[in-house]
């Protein structure tokens, strides 16, 4: 689902941005919008519906050794809930593995997640409480893949600046409670929202209780069917200036409003049928 969201409309970006909701701080009074208001606009952006696409994850370790995962992804909406389905195409040892997620909009309600393991011929329900674990070995974790509760974060608009010639808001997001930091795996984040389209194009995240940062950088942003989609994003884990690991996420052939992407698709039945 994570991936679905990402390509549906730079969902990752949205997700990250959504993680940062904010209160009212004196420093923000000089700006037209508060951090929270900006994040609400990010959240309200059209993310598209009934999407399908393909994703490539390139995992690069500190020695430069690469591992590549290729996935087919589908995304959709049911009322205010976000549904996603994805299948691994490669490498061969995870081929046909499927992952289905119901990401509920309702505050406090855990996601529903099912994993189909072809080796077991069995679908397993997955506990979705902790989201700090690595998603399939990448530099993203599960909290990066699901929509956060805006009310769980304080957002502070730090300043207006530019990234690659585009005006952006720089916002700091801090979880209000320690439980959320533990659960998401991040103690705080600084994100950069483009002012012309409310897309998050960069973020720095502080890994909870570790001297590590994760850098999310959108390298390619495209408008597809009227919806902004990050088609290439780099996520780098660093300690200080030293790179520990890096993930390159690429999305291809993204299409929205597909007739064959309907409610019947986001089911265990379809999950078990494979790509």
């Amino acid at each position: 689902m994570i991936f679905i969201k990402k390509y549906s409309n730079t969902i990752n970006f949205i997700i990250f941005t959504m993680l940062f909701s904010g209160g009212f701080y004196p420093a923000e009074k000089v700006f037209a919008l508060t951090g929270r208001e900006i994040m609400e606009k990010v959240n309200a952006r059209d993310e598209g519906d009934r999407s399908k696409g393909e994703m490539e994850m390139i995992l690069i370790d500190k020695k430069g050794k690469k591992r590549i995962r290729k996935l087919k992804t589908f995304g959709g909406k049911k009322d205010k809930d976000t549904l996603s389905l994805m299948f691994f195409l490669s490498p061969a040892d995870v081929k046909n593995t499927g992952f289905l997620t119901y990401d509920y909009n309702e505050s406090g309600k855990d996601d529903d997640q099912w994993l189909y393991l072809p080796a077991l011929r069995k679908t397993k329900r997955i506990a979705a409480g902790d989201k700090s674990g690595s998603f399939m070995g990448s530099d993203l974790n599960y909290s990066d893949m699901t929509t956060p509760d805006l009310d769980l974060y304080d957002y502070t608009l730090m300043k207006e600046t530019e990234v690659r010639g585009k005006k952006v808001w720089q916002i700091k997001a801090v979880p209000k409670h320690k439980d959320e930091a533990v659960k998401s795996g991040y103690s705080k984040s600084v994100i950069f929202i483009r002012q012309d389209n409310y897309v998050m194009i960069r973020a720095v995240r502080w890994v909870h209780k570790k001297r590590r940062n994760k850098y999310l950088d959108v390298k390619k942003l495209e408008k597809i069917d009227g919806i902004w989609v990050s088609t290439e994003m780099h996520v780098t884990t660093k300690t200080g200036k030293k790179t520990l690991h890096k993930t390159v996420l690429k999305q291809n052939n993204i299409r929205f409003n597909q007739d064959d992407v309907n409610a019947d698709l986001f089911t265990v039945r379809r999950l078990e049928k494979g790509a």
Binding site: E56, K72, V190, V204, Y215, E232, T236, V248, N252
Partner: peptide, 29 residues
Amino acid sequence: EDSGIEDALSGFDEEKNIKHTEETKALFE
């Protein structure tokens, strides 16, 4: 820690895109 944020924000790589796009398209299509 805000003073440390600026240090962290300077950590973005300015490298060029990794050349995988064409390969990816070819495989998935």
